[in-house]
Design a protein around this nucleic acid. Structure first.
Lengths: 119, 119
DNA sequence: TCATGGTTACAAAAAGGTGCGTAATTTACC
DNA sequence: GGTAAATTACGCACCTTTTTGTAACCATGA
């Protein structure tokens, strides 16, 4: 039973942004409007179900805007809301921080674990 | 043990900071040096297993410094490393962002503002 | 028949909790 | 004097809960 609505905003953010996909989806949505299938192409390892779930979650908390166009095949577009866009630099800052830390760690770590930058 | 080598720093940060505990522990460690039992007191709902696991993880990535003092009963102290301290304002910024979003969501939301439909 | 954006059911995997064991020394007790 | 309990920071095994993956199904216009 989880009825613990946390007293801490940070705990709440992490409930939304933690996990593997949310920040990635936000990252890809920076480029502009994306459709369901676009996002799957951007991130081929996410399952159909997860993508639907995560998008719904992001929509519910107001990070993502879902726009449904009539007609068939159904067409749906996803964008970052203004709130979502305000989030982007914060996430980027975390990425930069991590690069810093990882860079420092690499000096004392055996080779073999390399990372490549995203395009 | 699984070694997920991701292409994206953000994905990696989230693997470390995502989840329920890491940010909370960092939050409490802002106050200064803490011992294992202090952290359990700060956060009574974490199990000793989880606390140990999370602390080790944070130590491994260089956010937390673990200092073991000899003697018995064993005594261990935890602090934020400089990198960990640099992380704090970033986490705080996320918290502020969330307060913003949550505040906006709670406020009046007249029907019809959200769903956009085009034909 | 295919494509799009879903949903649902079932299965597998990961995360998390509980409780016991451990170490070396002090203190508490018979 | 000898023994037992308590202390601190975990590790480990076992079990439950939560999350995620897989695959199948839906609607329908072209």
């Amino acid at each position: 039973m989880k009825e613990l609505v946390s007293r801490c905003p940070i705990e709440e953010v992490m409930q939304v942004l933690g996990g593997r996909w949310p920040t990635l989806l936000i990252y890809y949505l920076q480029d502009g409007t994306k459709r369901f299938s676009d996002l799957r192409r951007d991130n081929p390892t996410i399952s159909h179900k997860m993508l639907a779930l995560e998008l719904r979650k992001l929509e519910e908390v107001g990070i993502v805007q879902r726009t449904e166009f009539g007609g068939y095949p159904l067409r749906v577009e996803y964008d970052l809301t203004p709130a979502g866009q305000r989030l982007v630099p914060l996430i980027d800052a975390l990425g930069d921080w991590w690069d810093d830390v990882a860079g420092a760690n690499e000096e004392s770590r055996p080779a073999g674990t390399e990372r490549a930058a995203m395009s």
